[in-house]
Amino acid sequence: SRHTFEINGERWTVEGVSEELKEILRAAERASNDEAERLLRLALKLI
């Protein structure tokens, strides 16, 4: 499935992501810059 999210003013669209990964991306959208970066690094390990 496709998911579009915005982090630090940048929009991203990813396809074929699991519900778990979507949850991480949604958390990154709400997080501070440092926390968002940490969550994105974690998410990339899952891809």
Rank of each mutant, 00 (worst) to 15 (best):
R30L: 14
F5S: 02
I7V: 07
R38H: 09
L46T: 07
A36W: 05
G9I: 02
T4G: 04
L46D: 04
K22M: 15
E35I: 07
L21A: 14
N8M: 11
I7G: 01
E37D: 12
R30C: 11
R30E: 10
L46A: 06
K45F: 13
I24Y: 04
R38F: 10
A28F: 06
E10V: 15
T4Y: 13
L42G: 04
E23T: 11
E35M: 06
N33Q: 14
L25A: 01
L46P: 01
W12F: 14
F5N: 02
S1R: 11
E29A: 08
E15Q: 10
I7Q: 01
L39I: 05
V17N: 05
T4H: 14
R41G: 08
R38S: 07
A28V: 06
E20M: 08
V17Q: 04
A31L: 07
E15L: 08
K45I: 13
E29Q: 08
I7A: 01
I47G: 03
G9F: 03
R38N: 08
E19N: 08
L44Y: 04
R30V: 10
A36F: 05
E19I: 07
R38M: 10
E29V: 06
I24C: 04
A31M: 05
E6C: 15
L40W: 06
E6T: 10
L44V: 11
S1N: 14
N8D: 11
L39Q: 01
L44I: 14
E29S: 11
R38L: 09
G9A: 02
T13V: 14
L25P: 00
L39F: 04
L42P: 01
V17Y: 06
I24H: 02
L25I: 04
I7T: 02
S32N: 12
R30N: 12
R2Y: 13
T4Q: 10
L42I: 11
R11L: 15
V17P: 14
K22A: 13
I24G: 00
G16F: 12
S32H: 11
H3W: 14
R26W: 06
A31D: 02
F5P: 02
L44T: 07
I24R: 01
K22N: 09
R26M: 12
L40Q: 01
L25D: 00
S18E: 04
S18Q: 04
F5E: 02
T4F: 11
W12V: 11
N8K: 03
L42C: 10
N33R: 15
T4M: 10
L44R: 07
W12R: 00
H3F: 15
N8E: 05
V17I: 13
G16L: 11
E15S: 10
E20H: 09
A27W: 08
H3P: 06
L39R: 00
R11C: 15
F5I: 11
V17D: 07
N33I: 12
G16M: 09
R41E: 13
E10M: 13
I47A: 08
E37R: 09
R30W: 06
L46Y: 10
T13E: 10
I24V: 07
L46Q: 08
L42E: 10
L25G: 00
R11Y: 15
F5D: 02
N8Y: 05
S1T: 14
F5H: 03
A31P: 01
L46W: 07
E19R: 03
E35V: 09
G16A: 10
N8A: 08
T13H: 09
R38Y: 09
E10P: 00
E35P: 02
I47H: 04
V17R: 01
R26C: 10
E6S: 03
H3M: 14
K45D: 15
G9K: 01
A36M: 07
L25W: 02
N8Q: 05
G16Y: 12
E20F: 10
E19S: 07
A36N: 03
R30S: 10
E19G: 07
E6D: 07
I7H: 02
R41D: 12
L40D: 00
D34Q: 12
R11F: 15
W12H: 05
L44F: 06
A36V: 07
I7R: 01
